Every structure is written in structure tokens, then in C-alpha cells.
Amino acid sequence: MIEVQAVTLKLNGVRLEPLAPAHAPGLRAAAEDGQIWKLRVTWVPGPEQVDDYIGAALTMPNRLAFAVIDDDSGAVMGTTSYHDIMPEIDRVEIGHTWYAKSRQRSGVNTSCKLMLLAHAFNTLGCEVVGLRTDNLNHASQAAIERLGAHKDGVIRHHAARRDGSVRDTVIYSILRGEWHGIESALRDRLQLHAGA
């Protein structure tokens, strides 16, 4: 049975550390970078909502939230989480992920996913890691599929968007038996990105 505890992870100049109220100014700046809270297909807090966002993340059952930090500058680039942690079946999900606009398509997401997946499978002993996204968030779906995750299906009429509409949710998973090949592909991709 897995036991998820607070941990700090580092890879390729990206640091994941447990989210804390002290990260609020950096998260505000990350949200303001590109005004990403205005996107319809993901939920990012507006600058005035960051304190409440952090409070909710820290009190949500079965969630371990991380700040995504540039290890060189100390700048907060965004946030991500393990959530829907189910120790009885050795399952976690990765989500509640968003990055400052300037950090998107930069290798940060690949580094974060590699750290979280490696920790889940290699350290925690997970049998499966799930991911989910809005059915209209095609960029997120493409990013999850590039990881090598299997599309399990769609839960229709599943969650409210901030504009009051209701989204369908696309569900993905990676099984332990698939992890070795996915890990190798992610490491190769990061090497190519570093050489670009």
C-alpha cells in the first residue's frame, strides 16, 4: 500500500517542493504571465484568488500540491499535484497543473511529469497513475498523449467550468508495466530539448 508524503524533487533545473503560503507572490506572478486565469478550458486562479487556491490545495483530502520552481532563480513557474490518492489500490493522479505562459512548451512540463511519474512508480510503488483534462483542452490532451498515456475514456457532464458551462472530462492512465518505456522516451525527449 503506497504512502504519499511531502517530498522535494529536482531535475533539469526544475524543483518541485511542497506548496506553501509563502509561494503566493510567485504564483500570482505566474498566473499574471499571459493572464492564463482567463482560459476557459483549465482552472487557474486569478491573482486575487491565489491565497484561497493555496489554502484549498493544502486542505483538500488525498492531495499533495507542489510549487514548480526554477532551481536557479527561485522563481515560481506554476503548480502541480498528486491528487485522488488511493493507497488501497496503489493509485495516484497527477493534475491541478498549470504554468506561467512563458514557461509553457519549454521542457518544464516534461521535467515535472518525469519527476512525478518516476517518484510514483519507482519510489511509491504505484500500480497506475492517472491524468485527466477538459475535453476542450486539446493542448493538454496532446501533452498527455505525448507522455505515452492511454486514453481510458470520457466522463460526460462531469465538472463545472469557471464560466458556468459543464465540461466533459477525458481520463488517461499509465500502468506500471508501461512505465519503463515511457520513462526512456521522456528522458530522450529531455535530452533532445536540452540540445535544441
Score class of each variant (00 low, 15 high):
Q5A: 15
V7T: 11
L16S: 13
L186V: 09
Q49M: 07
A56F: 11
H23Y: 15
S106I: 05
R28Y: 09
L58H: 07
V41Y: 15
I171W: 10
P21N: 08
M115F: 04
Y172L: 00
H150Y: 08
N137P: 03
L16N: 10
S173Q: 00
D70S: 04
A20P: 07
I144W: 00
M60R: 13
Q5S: 15
A139T: 12
R187T: 13
R176M: 08
Y53R: 09
K151E: 02
L64V: 06
A57D: 10
R28P: 08
T123E: 15
R103I: 06
N122H: 12
I182K: 02
E93W: 02
L16C: 14
L131P: 02
E48D: 15
M86W: 03
R91E: 04
A24N: 07
V76Q: 04
H83Y: 13
G55T: 03
I144T: 09
K151H: 08
I155H: 12
V154W: 08
F66K: 09
H138A: 12
V166Y: 12
I69G: 06
A57S: 15
A20C: 12
K38S: 15
D70T: 06
S102M: 05
P87E: 02
S111I: 01
A118K: 02
D72I: 15
G153Q: 00
L117K: 04
L16W: 05
H83E: 03
W43M: 10
S102H: 06
E183Q: 14
K10Y: 01
I144V: 12
I36P: 08
L124T: 07
Q35L: 05
P25V: 06
T80G: 05
L116I: 03
T59P: 04
I89E: 05
G107P: 02
L175E: 02
L117S: 04
V129Q: 01
G130H: 00
N137M: 04
E145T: 15
I69A: 08
N12M: 08
W43D: 09
A149S: 12
Q141R: 15
G55M: 01
P18R: 14
P45S: 04
V44S: 08
A56V: 08
S173K: 00
R63F: 15
W43P: 00
R176N: 11
A160V: 14
E127Y: 03
I182W: 02
H119A: 14
Q5F: 13
S111P: 01
L124R: 06
H157V: 10
S106Y: 03
R167V: 09
G95A: 12
T169E: 02
A75L: 13
S102P: 07
D72C: 14
I89L: 07
T80M: 03
